[in-house]
Amino acid sequence: MSGTAPGGLPAATVADLYRAACLAELDALKPGNVHGYAPGHRMVVADFVTSADVSAPPLAAAGARVGQRVRGGVEATFAAVGQNTNLGILLLCAPLAYAAEQPGPLAEALNAVLAGFDASDSRDVFAAIRRANPGGLGRAERHDVSQIDDEALPPLRAAMAEAAPRDRIARAYGDGFRDLFAIGLPALVGARARGLVPPWTTTAVHLAYLMAVPDSHIARKHGPERAEAVRAQAQASLAGLDLAAAPVEPLLAYDRALKEAGLNPGTSADFTVATLFLDALLSARGEGA
């Protein structure tokens, strides 16, 4: 870390780092998810590349609030590819992008962003969720975003707290993005220390999430028990894998097994993008992971 307080980053830099994080995640072999090694879940890499490109300007818009960034990114994505490819990514990366504009340590700026939501953030984030229709984030006895009109919207952080037990992205809004700092960044630093280079450093991050916590996307679609079973299976099958040996075949075999079962650890992938983005922001600001 430099001896002076880190300064905010310009929008163009934030946009470039966001695009780079999205593309780096697509280059890595992430079992069960969309990646350049194999298609899956009726999605193709090209749609995600386009999504990264068109969502970068609203995500990085100077001075824009978190809700504006998320909604703008989702709307740009639907206009370009006609489907939800990046709601989770935008929900994680928008607070990071806003915090990256601020002076002082990024973690402190992030906490201030998360504590400073207003009614416009609620309106815009809920509109983005309705547009993306991810099937799960807003379903609850209270704060079901599909059933609440704009006049009755709850505070964004309250709605995220309601969803937190079943969605780790929502949980991040209440715990200061703890998973990024406790799982993602240590996995990335450890991978580099072992001599790994991209895309295997990215695979290491994805596997760290896959093995550490049940994936929220799997839990929403198949139930929490199935999500925990996938986590435990990944831990048993992949924990000893030597990524330095570029183990494409065993990872692709596991990738096929997950996809044939209709299991997509999409939340792990979203957190992987956010980890790469956070790492790049820290580096650009002279803070270092």
Rank of each mutant, 00 (worst) to 15 (best):
P224F: 12
H217R: 11
G195E: 15
E225S: 07
L238F: 03
W200T: 08
A219F: 11
A232P: 00
V213I: 13
S237V: 10
A204L: 07
D242K: 14
V248N: 10
L252W: 10
L196Y: 13
E249D: 15
R220V: 04
W200P: 01
P198H: 02
L207K: 02
T202V: 06
G195R: 14
M211E: 12
A253H: 09
R220D: 08
K221Y: 13
A212V: 03
A234D: 04
I218Q: 09
L196E: 15
L196V: 14
G240M: 13
W200H: 08
H206I: 07
S216F: 10
Q235D: 09
A219K: 08
A232F: 04
V197H: 10
P198I: 04
L251S: 00
Y254V: 15
T203H: 02
P224M: 04
G195V: 13
Y209N: 06
H206M: 09
A204H: 03
Y209S: 04
S237H: 06
A208T: 10
D215C: 15
S216N: 05
H222F: 13
L241P: 06
H217M: 04
V248S: 10
Q233I: 02
W200E: 03
T201K: 00
P224K: 03
A245R: 13
H222Y: 11
P199A: 12
D242R: 15
A204M: 04
E249L: 14
R226I: 10
A236M: 05
L243P: 00
V205R: 02
T202R: 07
T201Y: 00
P247A: 02
G195M: 15
L252Q: 11
W200C: 06
L251R: 00
V197Q: 12
Q233D: 05
H222C: 10
L241K: 06
K221C: 10
A208F: 11
L252G: 04
P198N: 02
P214L: 12
G240H: 09
A212N: 03
G195Y: 15
A244C: 09
L210I: 03
I218H: 09
T202K: 02
T203K: 01
M211Q: 12
L238M: 08
P224T: 08
V248G: 08
Q235I: 04
A244L: 15
K221L: 07
E228F: 06
P199M: 10
H206F: 15
H222M: 10
A234Y: 05
H206G: 09
L238G: 01
P214D: 09
Q235P: 03
A219E: 07
A239H: 14
W200N: 05
A212L: 05
E249F: 13
L210A: 04
L251W: 02
I218P: 02
P250W: 11
A208M: 06
P198L: 01
L243K: 03
P214W: 09
E228N: 05
I218Y: 12
E228I: 02
Q235N: 06
P247C: 01
P247E: 01
G195H: 14
G240E: 13
M211N: 04
P247R: 01
A229F: 04
A236Y: 03
R220F: 13
A239Q: 12
R220L: 14
A246H: 07
V213H: 14
